[in-house]
Design a protein around this nucleic acid. Sequence first.
RNA 1: GGGGGUGCGCCGGAGUUGGAGAGCCGGGCCAGACUGUAAAUCUGGUGACUUAGUCUGAAUAGGUUCGAUUCCUAUCACCCCCA
Length: 376
Amino acid sequence: MKYELIHTARGSSARAGRLTLDRGIVHTPIFMPVGTQAAVKACTLEDVETHVGAEIILGNTYHLYLRPGTEVLQSQGGIHGFNQWKKPVLTDSGGYQVYSLSNNRKIKEQGVIFQSHIDGSRHLFTPENVIDVQRKIGADIIMAFDECTPYPCEYQYAKKSMHLTHRWLDRCMERFGTTEALYGKRQLLAPIVQGSVYDDLRKMSAEYIAQKGLPINAIGGLSVGEPTEDLYHHTALVCEVLPKPNARYLMGVGTPENLLECIDRGIDMFDCVLPTRNARHGTLYTSEGRINIKNKKWQYDESIIDSQSTSPYSRKYSKAYLKHLIHTGEHFGKQIASVHNLCFYLWLVKEARKHILNDSFRAWKNDMMEKISRKL
RNA sequence: GGGGGUGCGCCGGAGUUGGAGAGCCGGGCCAGACUGUAAAUCUGGUGACUUAGUCUGAAUAGGUUCGAUUCCUAUCACCCCCA
């Protein structure tokens, strides 16, 4: 249960590391596929393990709490017993839903009252019960309860919210410290830096989180609509403050370009719905650029989807076939595309790691940035 | 063969039963968006052109009328009934 910094690339803040958890080792930098409801949408977990090569995936406290419910999960031995994914899982606390479901919730000092998006019933999420639920889910890494602020966000509100997130962190840590893991595997609690797009708040929050001395520190409240320069600026700023020996997790990011730029600034862990959501909607990422497989131009294209992909589907089926499947809404098309994008994301971070270790990261990154930002 | 009915957009439906349609709804099609997943979702476009506008358009050809998608005649197509 530790993070080890192995190497920092020459001429960059990019790092290679190793996160050792009871259910497996995570090699950083890493991308974590999002599996909100104990499933990675449109994929089988065999795809995610074997073809994608994911070392850790996400789950979501809010969604799993509502369905199937903590009682069901507990009765099945937690999420791992439930969905049979044997590697590490990280659960988001529901802090993102404070942002994304802002019309259905009320924030108080005690916690957040959510009105269920499913049946309208009311549920109070507190730092304490969010830890309890994540104990029952049995995630290997559990996130502190935070408020993910929107963009734009008034300074005074961002400041007030940040302090609330800090107080909630203390309560999370207190609860975490006085409870135990339920299924024989240890759990890590990760705190979250907030502060919107304000330098002084970000710095203050990063310092607050840093002094907790936890193995993984997360950065939240970014990639919520702010300009890309703000994302990069605040990522760099926070990485300057967070302790080097600990892992840094940038929540909810991002595009392939975002990953490379943020690895360059010192980020070790990422998660994002973009590869899977965009796949279902027709956008594929390849080492040659981005394509929209729904476009008419692929209708007769008999070439293979991507001969370089680690996905066997992408090395077998043609662009014309995938265009047809996505176009007609076939589930198989969403699967092919989702596995493809996840394979690309995992390939990208693994390549990044190689180039960090042999000190060629910057040159490789510059080359890749040019390629992946192309629209084919 | 006789009688009745219906014809406008790429398709289906609604509506206009003499008073301003490039014009309603759905689908299709063409694009775009999507960042700790209320997302199998959402947005825009979809006659032509020289595009803040202009022109053409209600099966086809005529006619009546100040004015016709609407009324009349012929033709064509499709549907229903009878033989």
